Structure formats: C-alpha cells, structure tokens
Amino acid sequence: MPGHLIRRMNQISVATFLQEAQTAGFDLTPVQFAAIYAIARNEGIDQATLSSLIAYDRVTIGGVVDRLLTKALIRREVSEKDRRARELYLTEKGRDLLEAMMPAVQKVQERMLEGLSAEERASLVALLKKATAGASAVPSGGQNEGE
C-alpha cells in the first residue's frame, strides 16, 4: 500500500539524514535543517509562515525555533511593520552550518534514491510533488515526526 511505503521511506529518510549528519559532525534533526533552509531562502519570515513552508504544525515549529535560537543558529526580531510579529533570520553561525551541511544533505538524497536510474529519480520526484500537492488539500490531524 502506498501509505506504508511512504511511511517506510520517511523512516529511511530520517535515519539516513541523522546518520549522515552525525558522521559529518552535525547536531541537527531533519526538521531543524528544513527550518534553517527555509529561513535562509525567506529571510524575515514569521513562525506561521515557516510552519506552512515546511508543513509542520505551529506548536511543533515553536519548539524547533526555540532549539535553533538556543543553538544560536537563528535570531528572532520584532517586525518593523507589525510590532506584534516576530521575524526569523539566520545568524552567521546558522549560515556557516547550512553551507557546511549541504554536502551531507546531498549525500542523503543520493543514498535514498540509489536504487533508481536518473530517469526514475526524476519521475519519482515529479510524482511525489504531484501526490503531495493533491493530498495537501486534505486536512490532516496527525503528528509530525523527526523532531
């Protein structure tokens, strides 16, 4: 069944990420990496936007942001446009970590798809994007994993 295979691939993805990150000397979970990656590409976003970008619920993302703040990888600033809003930015340490991690992250992507040809990889990614877009319209009540 597709649901089981998707769950199993997610387990493999998380385990492979953690193994590669640890081997390379990094202490970051997949969701923490996703958060700093998203912040790097969207400097000044708020937590709600970050939550939406990486598809994690707001409660979970709050804990992720707190851990990244504690690790000094991001900073949170009061928005000049809306004093109630808080904007997220990478610190220099966060930028350096993101850049240093990219080879390990690329290795994870390759390891996950090593059983497929280049054409099959492209097809799988295209189909996953299509299936994710279609399923995103369905409300979910599940918990996030990997944090």
Rank of each mutant, 00 (worst) to 15 (best):
S51H: 00
A34P: 01
Y37D: 03
K107P: 12
A137V: 09
L5I: 10
K107Q: 15
E114Q: 11
A38R: 00
M9W: 08
R95D: 11
A55D: 07
I54E: 08
E110C: 09
S123Q: 12
E77G: 00
N144Y: 07
E114W: 07
A55C: 09
K107L: 15
L116Q: 05
R67C: 05
I36F: 02
A85Y: 04
R41C: 02
V108H: 04
Q32F: 00
T132E: 00
M9F: 13
R121S: 11
M112T: 06
G44K: 01
F17A: 03
A85R: 09
I54S: 09
L127K: 13
R41K: 11
H4N: 14
D66K: 09
A126D: 10
N10S: 10
A104E: 14
F33V: 01
E110Y: 14
Q19Y: 14
Q143R: 15
A85K: 11
T29I: 03
A137S: 14
A104Y: 10
V31P: 04
D46E: 08
R84Q: 14
A48P: 01
L50C: 01
A135D: 09
V14N: 07
I61W: 02
E87Q: 02
A135N: 13
V108G: 01
V105W: 02
I6S: 06
V105F: 03
R58G: 07
M102T: 14
Q109E: 14
S79I: 07
L73H: 04
G115K: 08
R7T: 11
T132P: 01
I39G: 02
S79A: 09
R58P: 03
G44N: 02
R111I: 09
A40W: 00
S13Y: 10
A55F: 05
D96Q: 15
I12L: 11
L124Q: 03
A15T: 09
D66Q: 12
E114V: 05
L97H: 08
V31F: 03
E92W: 07
A48C: 05
Y37C: 02
L18F: 03
A100N: 11
S79V: 04
I39D: 02
L69Q: 04
M101Q: 08
P30G: 07
R67A: 13
S136T: 12
L69E: 05
L128K: 05
V59M: 12
I36L: 04
D46L: 04
Q11C: 10
M9N: 08
T60P: 04
L124Y: 09
R58H: 10
E92H: 09
P30F: 01
I36K: 01
Q32V: 00
A104L: 13
S140A: 14
G63C: 12
A118Q: 15
G134S: 13
A135H: 13
F26L: 07
L128C: 13
A55K: 05
M101A: 15
T29R: 04
D96A: 15
P2H: 11
P139A: 08
L53Y: 02
L28A: 07
R84G: 10
G63L: 12
L90H: 01
A133F: 10
A38I: 00
E145S: 13
L128Q: 09
G115C: 07
P103Y: 08
A15G: 05
I6A: 15
P139E: 05
E120Y: 05
D96P: 03
S79N: 09
R86T: 00
A38E: 02
E119P: 08
L124C: 06
L50Q: 02
E92M: 06
S13T: 13
